[in-house]
């Protein structure tokens, strides 16, 4: 890149070794080697994996950026190392260096190359954001990049789900648990995250107290859970596996303990789980407030007993007294 012309011009004028050419050669060998190793050896292991389509997209993104930034990193490091080794002051030499104030062609080249790199990265990132429906990030209540069959109103979300369609999972953050509500499967609310494989999942993330952030690591999904806001994120499950869910936004004393695990299962397994859970939680479901994209904590204060039945001893939808936090 930039080193190429640095090779040609300033060194050619002065006598002595062609520093630019040396640096260029060292750089191109190391940069090539680094890129090959990073892409082929490290690349397949780069987080966050490939369980969800969004995760796979992010992995690809990370790999592309690694491949682009490694040569830059190597260039600067090689240059600095070379400078430190070759251009150090020899003992007894108190003279000043050559008075170079700049070099307009190199400057122009540098600016052009960095601009092109940066702009192409931005274009690439935009493509990778729009095409996989927001790349697993929270897209607010009315996402404009959504997959076919996305259900954006509470009424549509409550239509019974059939395999092959978008599965809506509502994620409700509260101090310090996530609960999951399946509106298309009878609207039960559970602490388990179970998802069918090869299915486009729509997470509707909201909170009933403070801001949380729903981070399903292996699925490549992260969406802030804001009180009063429905934050939608998409991913497609690609194979069976376990999902780690953590809260990624500081939400109070037990933020560090706000995690659980979900799993991706086959479609028949999922349907069996859904119907059995739906039956098991029938009496709880009756007590729940009607399904909605957001909930108002002051309206669902009576949710306390429900959550206790679900095995939660958290905030129960109200503001907790911070002086005496209850251990989850």
């Amino acid at each position: 890149m930039a080193a190429e012309t640095q090779a040609a011009t300033p060194a050619a004028k002065a006598g002595g070794p062609n520093h630019g050419l040396r640096i260029f050669l060292i750089w191109i060998v190391l940069a090539l080697a680094a890129d090959l190793v990073l892409w082929f050896v490290l690349g397949p292991h780069i987080p966050p994996g490939r369980l969800g389509s969004a995760a796979q997209g992010q992995q690809f993104d990370n790999n592309v950026m690694i491949a682009m930034s490694a040569p830059v990193l190597v260039l600067v490091l090689v240059y600095f190392t070379y400078a430190i080794v070759v251009w150090r002051r020899r003992p007894g030499d108190d003279a000043d260096g050559p008075p170079l104030h700049g070099h307009s062609r190199i400057q122009a080249l540098w600016i052009t190359v960095t601009s092109v790199m940066v702009l192409s990265l931005a274009a690439f990132g935009t493509y990778e954001l729009i095409v996989p429906y927001g790349a697993g990030g929270g897209e607010g209540p009315s996402p404009i990049w959504n997959p076919p069959g996305a259900e954006l109103t509470a009424a549509a979300q409550q239509r019974p789900w059939a395999p092959g369609h978008v599965l809506v999972v509502q994620v409700i953050g509260q101090q310090w648990r996530f609960t999951y509500r399946y509106p298309g499967l009878g609207g039960f609310e559970t602490t388990e995250l179970v998802l069918p494989v090869n299915t486009m999942i729509q997470f509707d993330v909201t909170s009933i107290d403070v801001i949380h952030s729903f981070w399903a690591y292996q699925l490549g999904v992260k969406a802030d859970a804001n009180p009063g806001v429905d934050n939608v994120a998409y991913t497609k499950t690609q194979h069976l596996g376990r999902v780690t869910v953590r809260c990624a936004e500081l939400c109070g004393l037990w933020h560090g303990a706000m995690f659980n695990y979900g799993k991706v299962v086959t479609v028949p397994q999922f349907q069996a789980w859904a119907s059995s859970t739906s039956v098991a939680l029938a009496d709880v479901t009756k007590l729940l407030p009607p399904y909605s994209t957001t909930y108002d904590p002051t309206e669902i204060a009576h949710l306390g007993p429900v959550l206790q039945k679900l095995g939660l001893t958290g905030a129960g939808g109200g503001y907790y007294p911070p002086q005496d936090p209850s251990q989850p």
Binding site: Q6, A14, H19, F80, W87, R90, D93, P98, V118
Partner: peptide, 22 residues
């Protein structure tokens, strides 16, 4: 990402200043 262009200038300046330095 554009902000990395002016940030990169500092590296250009640093590397250029090191050229054949003492």
């Amino acid at each position: 990402e554009m902000i990395s262009i002016p940030t990169g200038f500092i590296f250009l300046v640093g590397m250029g200043t090191l050229w054949k330095a003492k």
